[in-house]
Design a binder for these strands. Structure first.
Lengths: 365, 365
DNA sequence: CTGAAAGCGCTTACAG
DNA sequence: CTGAAAGCGCTTACAG
């Protein structure tokens, strides 16, 4: 099964190709870079390249080029293992691939120090651009590299103390839609399960929750708001406490995908999944199969990543306009859990023994 | 909100630091690299570094170093958005981070050409190591770089036509455990829903399925084997066809996470989720909340990634032993769906109206 | 069109 | 210990 290949253990250099082809280093560089040269010289160069299995060292190329381009970008997210961010990473990769660019990936874990260290490590390796989901910290440390020509796009959250392109979801609007949907179903006591308030999306979703309540003339009960929920067990436990407490909610707005999963697990563990309504922010796998099927306001992580990558590449192509903000919608997907009435009955009259949910749309990844 | 920083739009160089500090370039390099120099010189260098906001260009450093180290590795997977691979990526990142190494990520989509292009693009950028989940193709194209000192570790699947370290799961053993569990529950007609046979894991899982059947004296019905199932809708449709066919299975072994999700969706859409048993390969989110809760043979993607990263760094640290294979187990997690009897009744006598599943272990991922 | 030369920003023998 | 010099593998003006 194993092949030991002949040839040196070292990669050959352009200089060696030139020697074998009997041309100058410049000519090899031209051929390798697709610049026109005499057919015969080109042939000899290509022959030597084949013979030596020559592949250009892009590290050296980058260092010497006048534009210093490395054909490399970095994506700095909260956690590459979170399905929202991994879908975003994949769509960035796909846009990058079409342009021959490679992608570094890194997770900040919401730690501003780790974010900064990672960003600077990427920049020290000469990335042409950086797409970043910033922590709650200060991103002005990126200003210098930005002015030096590094393309910079913020994603999922806007930048702080620096002016740059950004792609965000309408978090307040999505949260408002979720909560308004529950209010329309008759709910007044709606719990909010949230992430850390250092995170922009968490703040915005809480704002949307509050605005929806007040617009509908509901004076929110602060005891129904639980945050920050960071670890899975915290979200699970907060749900339990809320439900078992003295004045439980009739509905929950779970404002992030991992929190939604834990809240649903907790409701099932308590056996109250059919009497307490849930609308989550972000779609999750198997959402249409759990019982009741899970209603959510869904983002489109692939669209977020695509938009961010396109802004980034536009800057690398020389776009000089003022910074742009792209705001994408979050859309309500009603599947059942959000249509449970305060009485514990669904709007369509079905209970858990009913058949398919009210939407057949599959969860988005 | 915006800060315009003073200072040049260009990053400063080591040469400029030397000039400001009044020392030689060599001395700056020594200080920056932590080599001992006179306290007073070191102080002046550090002052100049601060003044100029100097940060070393690692690209240039790599080019000149005798070991050519770039402090960069690449992870080439089937799809970074697949939860199994994104968890693996995250654990590799964590090991890498402790050593100050950054991680490129790329998705092959099971295309050998794309795999090779990506691998060579990573190598052209001077990565110190490559962790790769290979497609069904030939990986001997990596031999030269391996001999040139690039650390190479295969993950999830063994290499083909090249000798290198590898970390794989006991796929046949896991599949055998899943199928044996179903047979123990009384099943004889067990469907197999599989990925493409070009993929090593798919082949191994089918082998485990067949071995379990034959060991238990069950002559398998070829009509119960459905593969390759690539897109989500193919897995959904294959499940439908199998169930609605003339001689349906009483149980399914769904041999990959995305296929499991679609099969479960299809069973629910048909309303037969309580009468047809399912054991999946790979855990999925919400597995313990769907009804019946989903039984699986679970891999530990974080452990796979960690083991791979550790093998890689051992090689980079100079380990010269023959190539090593690490085989990790897949463990059965019984939650309910795999304990449905051929009659449609669970082993514990409960039906869908029963309470919690037979295991409280949450899904791992 | 082609080649000789300079040089990107660093590290590393080599002298002093 | 420190500095001057060479050079990593390339690209790019500049002459011819």
């Amino acid at each position: 099964m194993t092949v030991r290949e002949r040839g040196p253990a070292r990669r050959s250099t352009m200089r060696e190709v030139a020697a074998v082809a009997g041309v100058s280093l410049s000519t090899v560089s031209r051929v390798v870079n697709g610049v026109e040269v005499q057919a015969e010289l080109a042939r000899r160069v290509r022959e030597a390249v084949r013979l030596l299995d020559y592949r250009r060292d892009l590290t050296a190329s980058t260092l010497r080029r006048s534009d210093r381009a490395s054909a490399t970008i970095a994506l700095l997210l909260e956690d590459v293992a979170n399905p929202f961010f991994s879908a975003l990473l994949r769509s960035v990769e796909d846009v990058a691939e079409r342009r021959g660019m490679l992608v570094f990936a890194g997770s900040s874990d919401e730690d501003p120090t780790r974010e900064r260290k990672l960003a600077q490590a990427f920049l020290a390796r000469g990335v042409d651009g950086l797409i970043i989901a910033p922590t709650g910290g200060d991103q002005s440390y990126l200003a210098r590299d930005q002015r030096a020509g590094v393309a910079l796009v913020f994603v999922d959250r806007p930048p702080r103390f620096i002016d740059a392109d950004a792609v965000v979801t309408d978090n307040a609007g999505g949260a408002d839609a979720a909560v308004s949907h529950l209010v329309a179903g008759g709910h007044v006591r709606i719990g909010f399960l949230g992430d850390r308030p250092e995170i922009h999306t968490a703040v915005e979703r809480l704002r949307g929750y509050r605005e929806a309540l007040s617009r509908h003339g509901i004076g929110g009960d602060p005891a129904l708001i639980r945050q920050p929920l960071v670890r899975a067990d915290e979200a699970f436990e907060a749900t339990r406490e809320l439900v078992l407490g003295p004045a439980p909610p009739t509905a929950l707005f779970t404002s992030q995908n991992l929190i939604t999963i834990e809240a649903v697990r907790a409701l099932h563990a308590l056996g109250v999944q059919d009497s307490i309504a849930v609308v989550g922010f972000d779609d999750v796998a198997l959402a249409d199969v759990v019982s009741p099927a899970l209603s959510v306001v869904a983002q489109d992580p692939a669209a977020v990543g695509r938009a961010a990558a396109e802004l980034l590449f536009a800057r690398l192509d020389g776009e000089r306009s003022p910074s742009r903000q792209v705001i994408l919608p979050a859309t309500l997907v009603a599947r059942g859990s959000g249509e449970i009435r305060p009485t514990g009955r669904r709007l369509d009259g079905r209970t858990r023994d009913g058949a398919a949910a009210s939407s057949t749309q599959p969860p988005g990844g």
